[in-house]
Amino acid sequence: MNKIRLFLGSDFIYRFRQDRAAQGSFTLFVLFVLFAFAAPLISPFDPYDRLQIDLMDSELPPLWQGENADARFLLGTDAQGRDMLSTILYGTRISLIIGFCAVGLQIFLGVSIGLISGYVGGRIDSFFMRLADIQLSLSTLMIAIIASAVFKASFGSEIYGDMAILVLVLVIGIAEWPQYARTVRASVLAERSKEYVDAARVIGLPRWRIMFRHVLPNTLSPILVISTVQIANAIISEAALSFLGLGMPVNKPSLGSLISSGFEFIFSGSWWITVIPSLVLVVLILSINLLGDWLRDVLNPRLYKD
């Protein structure tokens, strides 16, 4: 209880209360997360259940588009007759899961590697940093395309469909670890020369304990800040891959594959299949990025303006 009261009284909360953009984007983001994860409970249809899909309902416009609209489908239906609202909710859920998990993997890999590189230094440092340089010189999308293409080719689309989420998490997670490794390494180098590290060594603490208990917590704020950007990036990467047909399969669409599936109908008048999920994606990414901007300002005292 005490901790909660302390947290509520902190500068962090104070600054949050002062900032409309932060409140707005936070609310939006929380709403997205809530709706996405409550999708099975709140969505009117189950887009994964083939029995609920009727091809006769395909390409119905959203409710406000008049004439052909069907009261059952608030946002209309896609080319296969799935309810857009339900599909978007489920799709957002998949996008968020992939975003969070991929960033989790990036943090795990990047932070451990960055910490070890920065603290141990020497050859290990050079090795990992050159590896990071090499990886950064290939674009994320390129690595992701190669990896998912290879996976698809070697296991077939059937298995791929079942494992798509896992594969995307692995691919996006592994492709972006250097971001974290570099940031963490840079802060570790700065922290390592501080006296409290010497003091910890003088106390006789083991090396791993100094690394994880003393140095790591002092590098958390940059990690937190890039995490917001990275989550947004991971969601975008997933959407891009899905759009290119290398991501989520059509029967389990993420936002990206939804956008892509409606793309061929955009000129035949069924714009909603592409535009509505695109809007959702844009607003989601925007809210995460705004939140990240705010977080960066708050966690970096040198940027305090007022």
Partner: peptide, 25 residues
Amino acid sequence: EMRHIRGNRISMIFQDPMMTLNPVL
């Protein structure tokens, strides 16, 4: 082996107490 001596049999106190304590613990 030195680790068991440091902080156990021989301790050290540094100059600046602002710097020697870890700010996040």
